[in-house]
Amino acid sequence: MTLWVVQRATAAVLAVAVVVHLATILVAVRGGLSAAEIIGRLGGSEAWLAFYATFALAAGLHGAIGLRAIAAEWLGWRGRGFDLAWVAIGLATAAFGIRAAIGLYAA
């Protein structure tokens, strides 16, 4: 039940975040893609940091919950042990993304 609510809420966040992310890519690469340009846009901006941290958290949780359901149905991976593993995988995925967002903010 809680997972389902989280899945729906993160889906709503992702729907907006992915569009913003893709639109930014489309607009940003028109002048050619360079690391300097990306850092110039994201570096030092709290708004972009917050956006990408939220995006990464939503993606990490959403992905892990979805994979949990697929693994339960197709591989029979059910139970507390697997659930804890999925929590760890979800948070680890989110942590990688958030670390990258912080890296760009601090760059």
Binding site: M1, L3, W4, A69, A72, R78
Partner: peptide, 9 residues
């Protein structure tokens, strides 16, 4: 009816 065995599946 809630949860993995219920409507949320």
């Amino acid at each position: 009816v809630a949860g993995d065995a219920g409507c949320h599946a």
